[in-house]
């Protein structure tokens, strides 16, 4: 059981999202940084789709109402358990009554808190993710607030081999970003596959897509990131019919300033698509703060597949090795 003592708005329960409900206009939703949430669950031996808490705004304070094991991944937000500093991407035992305090991140944007067993909220359309726009999933379809008490599913009882916990090599170190010689330090490099309307853009716009930085504006959130940069123009603007879209689609509205649709993005749209950020790099966007810059690197389907396999291998190996660091215990966890 976790009790929320203090939280700004917009922090909510998420899992890996909804699949199979697009015929109702329901998109994937779920964690923005799926790799961080999956890594937290891997450290704990949870179901890979177990629900955790996505933390987007800080400071956050929670109290563990019972003995449990938790994992904290994603943004490095100087977490302290009863005052003791935790390393980033770390799992550790907590005793009943201990308090976990998270400060605004020094690196990254979104942190993920998972507990052994996963957060127990009802599944809605195959997922425990909070869909705030339509008010369903998660905890009553809303963001968390002080006073909320969250239960965890019962987990097989275990203790960590090391009292000091165990960690995961953060995804930013474990998973190589694409090569981009012109990228400045701190810029987020994303692999992009050309989309159906790429050829409709003029040569200067095509070149600008790959060669110039794209600033993440303040109008960036779980629905999408609005970018600022060179205005992208089509040779001959034609109306598009409304069509299904996926997280990662880079739409270009008539202003020429691109929008990347993300987890809570629309499931359909009518703007031309110049490219699509590959699935394996979407987590990088989740950690790119407003004011920072993105770089796009052209990518083939084969390269995308290789990147996707690297993510799966990272998470799979982490899960296996973390298993050696858990010992069965007589006590009941969660």
């Amino acid at each position: 059981m976790i009790e929320i003592l203090e939280t700004p708005p917009l922090n909510a329960i998420q899992d890996l999202g909804r699949l199979g409900y697009r015929c109702h206009g329901v998109g994937r939703g779920g964690a923005m940084d799926r790799v961080a949430l999956a890594a937290a669950n891997a450290l704990l031996g949870n179901d890979e789709n177990a629900a955790g808490i996505e933390l987007q705004l800080f400071p956050v304070r929670v109290r563990f109402a019972g003995d449990t094991v938790f994992a904290l991944t994603g943004a490095d937000c100087e977490a302290r358990l009863d005052g003791r500093l935790l390393p980033p991407w770390w799992a550790m035992s907590a005793q009943a009554g201990q308090e976990l305090v998270l400060s605004p991140p020094r690196q990254g944007l979104r942190a993920y808190l998972a507990v052994a067993g996963g957060i127990d909220v009802p599944e809605v359309m195959g997922s425990r993710s909070t869909q705030m726009r339509d008010g369903f999933g998660g905890l009553d379809g809303r963001a968390l607030a002080a006073g909320d008490r969250l239960a965890a599913f019962p987990a097989p009882a275990f203790a960590l081999r090391d009292g000091a916990g165990l960690g995961a090599l953060p995804a930013s170190l474990a998973l190589a970003a694409a090569d981009c010689p012109q990228a400045q330090p701190g810029e987020t490099v994303l692999r992009v596959i050309q989309a159906a309307e790429y050829e409709q853009f003029d040569a200067a716009s095509q070149a600008a897509l790959w060669q110039t930085p794209w600033k993440v504006t303040a109008q960036s959130n779980r629905q999408g990131y609005r970018l600022a940069g060179v205005a992208l123009q089509r040779l001959e603007p034609v109306e598009m019919r409304s069509h299904g879209i996926v997280p990662g689609v880079i739409q270009v509205p008539p202003s020429g300033q691109p929008i990347i649709q993300l987890a809570d993005g629309n499931s359909a749209g009518g703007y031309p698509k110049i490219g699509v950020v590959i699935e394996a790099d979407l987590w990088r966007i989740a950690q790119a703060a407003p004011g920072s810059a993105l770089r796009f690197v052209s990518c083939t389907l084969e390269e995308a597949r290789t990147a996707e396999r690297a993510v799966a291998a990272y998470l799979g190996t982490l899960r296996r090795l973390a298993g050696y660091c858990r010992l069965p215990s007589l006590g009941k966890v969660a």
Binding site: R22, S242, H243, G244, A268, L301, A304, R305
Partner: peptide
């Protein structure tokens, strides 16, 4: 993993690891 009709179009969502898009 999912399919979504659009206007005169169909979006087919694939498993990024298992599917062969080509």
């Amino acid at each position: 993993v999912d399919a979504q009709p659009g206007m005169n179009s169909l979006l087919i969502v694939l498993d990024p690891l298992e599917a062969d898009p080509q």
